[in-house]
Design a binder for these strands. Structure first.
Length: 232
DNA sequence: GCGACAG
DNA sequence: ATCTTGTCGC
């Protein structure tokens, strides 16, 4: 099995990685509304690790945005090239994610990332970074509020509340979104070429039944399966 | 200095 | 992320 090639200039140190974020941040397009939910395709990407064996597997699953059925799936196997450091997740995940997107024949459409976009200490999370490198519209949907704060949204599906950075006088960096009645919210932020309100609409469109978007559920299941196979 | 911290 | 059994509930 071929392994993902890591770019020669990929950052090695935390300081280099932070400098890359500060450099690329200005390329984020925060103004486009983004594609409307329910049309075209929508793609989920996720990554699974085996740190013992130093292996990382990424999966991409393209869905028809109208009926949420699978259009195409792809996986890519790589080597761990950066440790997990809060705020620098992209440097760990992106080489393999870029490779798996390259393997798709279908147009990805909007890409849904497991993590953050604008909701990031330097406003340049995984989804923002992926968007800038591919020029695809991206959003981040995370399972945890990271360092940010929020008031619980209403109990009903569709309720939202601001996700704020208390350290930046309450700037709204994303939204807590209740995707199912009475279930813990998810944390949505804009990536590249998609505004926050559109990102929230996509998130609700992708969660007819479960807490997490169908895109992330599908990609998560696929990369775990592929890791188990790549590891034996 | 200490703790917290997407995946 | 990953390590891990059963268990409560629709």
């Amino acid at each position: 099995m071929t392994t993902v090639r890591i770019p020669a200039d990929w950052p090695t140190t935390e300081a280099q990685a932070r400098a890359v974020q500060d450099e690329l941040r200005s390329r984020v397009d925060p103004r486009e509304a983004g594609p409307p939910p329910g049309t075209g395709t929508v793609t989920g990407v996720d990554v699974a690790y085996d740190d013992e064996r130093d292996v990382v597997v990424a999966a991409a699953v393209v869905l028809d945005a109208g009926n949420l059925e699978v259009v195409e799936e792809a996986t890519a196997v790589g080597r761990v090239c950066f440790p997990y450091v809060p705020g620098l997740l992209a440097f760990r995940e992106l080489p393999t994610v870029l490779a798996v997107l390259d393997r798709l024949t279908a147009a990805p459409g909007l890409v849904v990332c497991d993590g953050y976009g604008r909701a990031h200490p330097r406003r340049f999370g995984l989804a923002s970074h992926l968007g800038v490198l591919t020029e695809l519209p991206t959003i981040g949907v995370a399972k945890n509020p990271f360092t940010f704060t929020y008031e619980a949204p209403g109990e009903r599906r569709g309720s939202t509340s601001p996700l704020v950075d208390a350290a930046a006088d309450g700037e709204e960096v994303g939204r807590a979104v209740r995707t199912q009645d009475g279930v813990k919210p998810v944390f949505v932020s804009a990536g590249h070429r998609v505004r926050l309100d559109t990102a929230v609409a996509h998130t609700l469109h992708l969660t007819p039944r479960y807490r997490l978007p169908e895109t992330t559920r599908r990609a998560d299941a696929l990369c775990r399966r592929a890791l188990a196979e790549a590891t034996r």
